[in-house]
């Protein structure tokens, strides 16, 4: 019999699949209950060689083109941890975001804000032995969307992590402190209020570099080993 390390299930801070205030969820979320299954080797394993999968690290989004992008240069730094506070080393964090004006380089983003030829807004950073990562980018702008009248998304950076197993996959969005759009955003608002601030980064003077860039801290916590595994 193969020994299997179980991972925790999702906690009370996760959003539901159906959240009608975010209109697109209504026709795209299941109505049948999820079928709970024991974790097998399928769920407790995952790809480890991120570089073979995704290529080399691209941690400075301000140096991908001929000149520097417009906008406020920022450093985002933090740790990837599991729920037992253990670092998750050598794991890839994929990031993508809008430019300083709030426009994505994506061809289907038709909002009338300028593109920046010097900013793509995609990268991937790798955690070190202590689970730390760091990247340099510009602060993304807010942008309007069609969810409801006068809807604006708060400034955010998308982050995508595999973690050690299929079960530890996470895609999230990092928000900025004191953004007045967060409390009225139905995507951030899908997360129960008591847990929503987990997605809000902290301005940090120690991460800030003099005469260079503002620094923000953002730790990412993945599902951890389950202390009380199911008897399977």
């Amino acid at each position: 019999m193969t020994k299997i390390l179980d991972y925790t299930r999702e906690d009370a801070g996760q959003p539901p699949s159906l959240f009608p205030a975010y209109a697109s969820t209504v026709a795209r979320s299941p109505r049948e209950p999820l079928v709970r299954i024991p974790q097998t080797l399928t769920e407790t394993t995952g790809p480890a060689d991120w570089s073979a999968l995704m290529g080399e690290s691209k941690a400075d989004l301000t140096r991908q083109h001929a000149a520097a992008p417009l906008g406020q240069r920022i450093i985002v730094s933090g740790r990837v941890l599991d729920e037992a506070h253990r670092p998750v080393p050598n794991t890839v964090v994929e990031i993508w975001q809008a430019n300083a004006a709030g426009r994505y380089i994506h061809k289907k983003d038709q909002w009338d804000a300028p593109l920046d030829p010097n900013f793509t807004g995609a990268g991937r950073v790798i955690t070190d032995a202590e689970g730390r990562y760091r990247y340099v980018t510009v602060r993304p702008g807010a942008y309007p969307w069609r969810n409801h009248y006068n809807a604006w998304r708060p400034s955010h950076i998308h982050l995508s992590l595999l973690g050690p197993a299929f079960a530890t996959r996470l895609v999230t969005q990092m928000y900025f402190p004191d953004d007045p759009l967060i409390p009225i955003d139905p995507i951030a608002g899908a997360v129960p209020e008591a847990y929503r601030q987990r997605m809000v980064s902290r301005f940090d003077l120690a991460t800030t570099q003099p005469d260079w860039a503002l620094g923000y801290l953002f730790d990412i916590v993945l599902r951890g080993p389950d202390a009380t595994p199911m008897g399977i």
């Binding site: 801070g13 996760q14 959003p15 993508w96 994506h106 807004g121 895609v171």
Partner: peptide, 20 residues
């Protein structure tokens, strides 16, 4: 507040960031 980072949607504009 320490605990699982909440999930958020990939949104509609992930194509230049995720699927290689």
């Amino acid at each position: 507040l320490f605990g699982q980072t909440p999930w958020q949607t990939v949104g509609p504009f992930f194509h230049y960031g995720l699927p290689w």
